[in-house]
Nucleic acid binder design. Structure first.
Lengths: 195, 195
DNA sequence: AGCAGTGATGACACTCGGTGACCTCACTGT
DNA sequence: ACAGTGAGGTCACCGAGTGTCATCACTGCT
């Protein structure tokens, strides 16, 4: 008979997700999460650096996006490459479906968690900018294209979690980037954005 | 003789700024800040909701930006209005000069503080989007224009703090938004961004 | 079989951010 | 004079996060 149940980490993630969505993030203590997983507070912090991180561990987001950018057609513009990368991420989350959306909703419900999500986005933007530079995009352009793409992703995911069933995040990302183009285009956007 | 020295809040801000920049944010305890200001920990938390907020209290950023947007020429495109607002903010920070840049550098040096800064940016973006909607800009456009503008502001301020003396944040904001336009423009940005 | 690691977990004490409850006392207005 | 008022102090407490040491099933080697 083994001394411990296996998959402590997964059990902690499950427990945290359940409690955060039942009572809310700040009404949940780490001890409660650990107890629910049959572990102790100390063990929780061996698996996750802090109370928030338990919601952000799953899946190599950056890897998905960066790899998609690397394998995009080389002649494209910077924003187009970013779009490919973020659409790939959208496809992954579409596949996960409701569970992924549920996690995002929990994060949006707590300012503390949203804070953490924003810094994850920032680090994703940096990874994207690096990938663009590796493709020969110049420096101000790389950062701006990366950050703008992430902006579009955020807008798209906000819409996605309101209706996961009928909407595709991948499509919403594509649309958001198209809208971004319309707004930022030098000649368009002047009176076109009204109405 | 008064029972307490006046300007407790300002003294706390000063003390925090000094200690954060000497030892770093996480090597400074609230008790140390309070002691340096001749006060107690409890009093610190009566003035600031948490240890980070002490760096973000000064100045009505949102007000500056929103008012500038409201008083911009009405026929402009959404991104143009945002640009006006953020240039106004840039002018204010240019005026404050080195002290403002110093504060930003401290924030950038600590992940925790940067996290807080990001959520401040997010709330600024929401305020900007509201101001745009009040001017008749439609909904996806308002959010995207606001968020993209803030992106440009972030890029600009990152450049600004590297050389406050010779550079103007206001100008850097204008330039960043112009670069954003170049990237996002539907036909440009294709091969233009390389080399 | 015996035995020395190894590594995940528990136990415990501690620091620090943050809060609630109650006390103090210079100032203010009547 | 005297009852507020409000900024600040005191104290006790909770919960996040960490350092340190003990435990003990499992592994591999002899």
């Amino acid at each position: 008979m083994p001394r411990w149940q296996p998959d402590a980490r997964a059990r902690l993630e499950e427990a945290a997700l359940a409690l955060y969505s039942e009572r809310g993030f700040d009404q949940t203590t780490v001890e409660e999460i650990a107890a629910r997983a049959g572990l102790t507070k100390r063990t929780f912090f061996r698996h996750f650096v802090d109370k928030r991180e338990v919601l952000f561990g799953g899946g190599d987001i950056e890897g998905v996006v960066v790899r998609a950018i690397q394998s995009a057609p080389p002649a494209e513009g910077a924003l187009e490459s970013v779009s490919r990368g973020l659409e790939a991420l959208g496809a992954v989350l579409d596949e996960q479906g409701e569970p992924a959306a549920r996690r995002i909703r929990i994060v949006r419900a707590s300012p503390e968690l949203w804070e953490r999500q924003l810094i994850k986005f920032a680090s994703l933007a940096q990874a994207v900018a690096r990938a663009l530079r590796a493709r020969g995009v110049g420096d101000p352009a790389a950062i701006l294209a990366a950050e703008s793409g992430i902006t579009a992703l955020r807008v798209a995911s906000d819409r996605w979690i309101e209706d996961t069933k009928t909407q595709s995040l991948q499509r919403l990302v594509t649309e958001s980037i198209a809208e971004l183009r319309a707004i930022a285009s030098p000649r368009a956007g002047r009176a076109r954005t009204r109405r």
